[in-house]
Each structure stands twice: as structure tokens, then as C-alpha cells.
Design a protein around this nucleic acid. Structure first.
Lengths: 240, 240
DNA sequence: CTAAGATTCAAACAAACGTTTAAACGAGAA
DNA sequence: TTCTCGTTTAAACGTTTGTTTGAATCTTAG
């Protein structure tokens, strides 16, 4: 019995194999999703042996988490750092909504721009993971985001003191949802190609359109809510 | 050689087997996604023979499409019918935004309410399908929605004459995205349980919060766009 | 150089997958 | 009854999956 010991790299410089696996896995997971991506495809495009994944990462699931962590940890830390600086700059006043949104978007943009590290397509993988039903993925993302989301919710709460906390929770959820879906979308790529073919960075073009849209929704007065809701009520009653 | 002939039901009353398969498949696809759901699990919970799926539907992919079509076709037809009626009522004036949104949401709400036909959870399956990378799913949804989306885009365009068409395309995309993601989310279920435990219908509670949020984003003036975008520019420049 | 440990390799593993097959079944018509 | 044809059944098909294994190879320190 050999146990489940996963050896760590003894050299400080990471052996090339692990990063090659991570790069290949990132690209393939992004394109086909978790279930549909086989270890043989990953090790094949990475140019390493099939057994390398289980040797270095333990399992396919752990490899997937490693792929996400590599980019997600720095991004979320950057988000928190940005928010912290904003809160310091504006103290004791609340940070304005558009500034908070900036702290949420800029690190994502930087990730999207980091072409050297293949980040240009990573956001799509992230968006896809958000919609994946696999329990281990959902738990991983939930844990990964819990701290950051809590901090941002508090900040938005201070910026929008008149908005009930419940409503704020909903709108923050919508924001993260729209962000995830938009980044994951295959349709988004088409839209970009059709609408702004000259844009240098796809994800940047996308986020630039998304941010104003979400800001308006976030700042929507509660009163306006009645407009659509009343319509819903009326229409539903009429059709019964 | 037997060919790929898929026999149609000769009896006008559908044989119980096909609907049992559809029901079981709908529930399982919703819970685990397309790839992770096995035919053995479907036929097992449906209480039918393993070969029944291939006999009645031809393949797993065709079964999935049948599951979606059963609920999607009526929903999209209802959306178009509602929009048509609205356009007739308001003609020659354009239909207001909130009314158009209503035509988009009400049929989804009715589907969510149709508990007798298991519709309460179907919307989650739909949202998941939206984020699925499988090509046959993407093509299916694209074809399915093409007509409806075009009609609604035209209607929104008339309601928002000052909004550039490009911008409208983006915002419509965001709306469909937020709708899909929100319906697919496992997080949404938790949110509902925490925030509105008394609500009778989960999806309804969800759409009621989403609609005002999206309406505000849709109607956001182009000018406001500069607010966030300028922040993005500044922050990105500062961090280079 | 040598010994030890980390890494790679080809090969095989059992399990599970979607699909196919041929026989058995069941109801209605002649 | 007998024939027919749509349906169901149990069994097996050939692949492919993630993972494991033991030997070969490379790296590095003594």
C-alpha cells in the first residue's frame, strides 16, 4: 500500500511538467468543460505522460481546483486590496458605488489582459465553473469567494444606505451572475466579433459594456421596482 | 441493416414510457448536467428498460433536445404571442420597455408555476444548458431562440429609439445572461431560503427581484456609461 | 562514482459509458 | 387461432474513462 501521498516539488523552481499540465488543462477545461475533458487529452496536448496528472495533482478534481486557484487567488486578493485602499482614501465617507464596481472589475480586466499567462481565456473557464453542477466545484467556488463577497457586500451597503439589505443581496447576486455568464458565453465572442471587430482585447470590450449596465441596476430606486412588478401581477392575473 | 428509423407513436395517446423517460431525464439533467447524467440512471428512475431511450429517442443527445423542446417551444410561443398582442394594443406607438420585459418574463413565470408538470425546476435546467459548452446544445438553443430574440430586439429598439443598436444588442445579451444564470444557480436557492422563506414559489420570487434590476440597466442612459468606464480607465492607467 | 529519491514511462486495471442485438412479449386484425 | 407489428427485455458489444503499477530514467547530494 502506497497511500495517497502527493509529493511536493522539492526544487523551488517548479518542474516544467506541472505548469505544462496546468496550461493544457486550463485551455481544455475552458473549451469542453470539466466532465468532457479527458486526462488523455490534457496530457496529450501538454506532451507529458498520462500518469503525470495523478502523480503531481492526485486526481482530476484536484487538478481542476489547482487550475482555478492559480489565477483566482491573486485576482481576489487584488480585489480586496483595491477595496481596502478605496475605503482608506474615502474614510470616513462611504466609497461610491462606481468605485466599488471598479475594484471588482479591474482585477478581472488585468487577468484578461495577462495574455502572457494565457489569462485571456481564463475568465470564460471561470464563468463556466460557476454554472457547473458538480458539487466539488460549487463548494470550492463558494469557499473561495465567501470572504471577498462579504467585504464587497458591506461596502455596497455603506454606499447605498437606503437600499434594504435583502435587496442588496439580490442585486449583488445578479451582478456576479451577469458577470459570470457574460464571461462564460460563447455568444459573447460572436457579439464582440460582430460589434467591435477592432477591439484589441475581447474581455475588456465586454466588461466595459457590462459595467454601466450593472451600475444602473444596482442603483435602481426601489420605487422603480413597482413598475415591472405591477405589470407582472396584472398580466398574471389576467391570464389565470 | 436496420437503419436509424425512429418509430413514431401509433396511438394518439402517448405511451407512458416516453413521458416517464422525459420526466426522469428532466429531473436528472437538471441535477447533474448533461454529461454527468447516465442513461442507466435515467432509465432506472423512470422504471423502464435501458434500451428504451435509444428505441424511443434515438440517442442521448436527442433525448436531451426532446426534454428541452417539450417546455421551451410552448414558452417561446407564449412570449411571442404576448409581444404580438402588446404591439397591437399600443400601435402605432412603441410598446414600453417594462411591458416588453413582462412579455419576456410572464411565460417563464408560468412555466415555473406549472408544478403539475414538474416545471418548477425546469428553468434551472434551461439556465444550465445555456452555460453548457457542448456544441449540439449551443446550436440547439441558438436555433430555438433566434426568432424570438430577433422579435424582442426589434421591440426594444422601438421603445428605446435613442439607444444605439449596438448598445441594445449588448444589453439584451446581458439580460438573457442574467436571466439564465440566475435561474440555473444553486446559490439562488440558498438566497431564497435565507431571504424569503415564506414565498410560495421560488422562481417567482427570483424573477420579481430580477425584473426591476434589469429594467434599470436596460434604460440606463448612455451618459452614465462614462462614469464607470472613466474609473476603469483611470485605475488601469494608474496600475500600469 | 554511487546510492537515494524524485520523476517519467509504457502498460494494464476495473469500472462505467452509450449503443446494439436478437429474442420474448402483448395487443389487435383477419 | 394465427399473423403482424410496435414495444419491452436481458445480455452483450466495443470504447473510453480515471487510476494504479512496477520498472526505467533522471537528478542530486555525499
Amino acid at each position: 500500500m502506497h497511500g495517497k501521498i502527493i509529493p511536493f516539488a522539492t526544487n523551488v523552481a517548479a518542474p516544467k511538467t506541472t505548469t505544462r499540465i496546468l496550461d493544457a488543462a486550463e485551455a481544455l477545461f475552458m473549451e469542453h468543460g470539466f466532465e468532457a475533458t479527458t486526462l488523455r487529452a490534457i496530457t496529450g496536448t501538454a506532451g507529458v505522460n498520462l500518469a503525470a496528472v495523478n502523480y503531481h495533482f492526485g486526481s482530476k478534481e484536484e487538478l481542476f481546483q489547482a487550475v482555478l486557484t492559480r489565477r483566482l487567488d491573486p485576482m481576489n486578493e487584488a480585489r480586496l486590496a483595491l477595496l481596502t485602499r478605496l475605503e482608506h482614501d474615502y474614510a470616513p465617507k462611504p466609497v461610491p458605488c462606481e468605485k466599488i464596481l471598479t475594484a471588482l472589475f479591474v482585477p478581472a480586466l488585468e487577468l484578461a489582459r495577462d495574455r502572457h499567462r494565457g489569462g485571456e481565456n481564463f475568465l470564460r473557464l471561470l464563468g463556466r465553473a460557476y454554472a457547473d453542477p458538480a458539487p466539488f466545484i460549487r463548494k470550492f467556488l463558494s469557499d473561495q469567494y465567501a470572504v471577498m463577497i462579504a467585504r464587497f457586500k458591506a461596502a455596497f451597503g455603506r454606499a447605498l444606505p437606503r437600499l434594504p439589505r435583502k435587496e442588496l443581496s439580490w442585486r449583488l447576486h445578479f451582478i456576479m451572475g451577469a458577470l459570470s455568464y457574460t464571461l462564460a458565453g460563447t455568444d459573447a465572442a460572436k457579439l464582440i466579433a460582430e460589434l467591435t471587430p477592432h477591439e484589441t482585447n475581447n474581455d475588456e470590450a465586454l466588461l466595459r459594456r457590462l459595467a454601466p449596465f450593472l451600475l444602473a441596476g444596482l442603483q435602481a430606486p426601489m420605487a422603480a421596482s413597482a413598475d415591472v412588478t405591477r405589470e407582472l401581477d396584472g398580466e398574471l392575473a389576467r391570464r389565470r
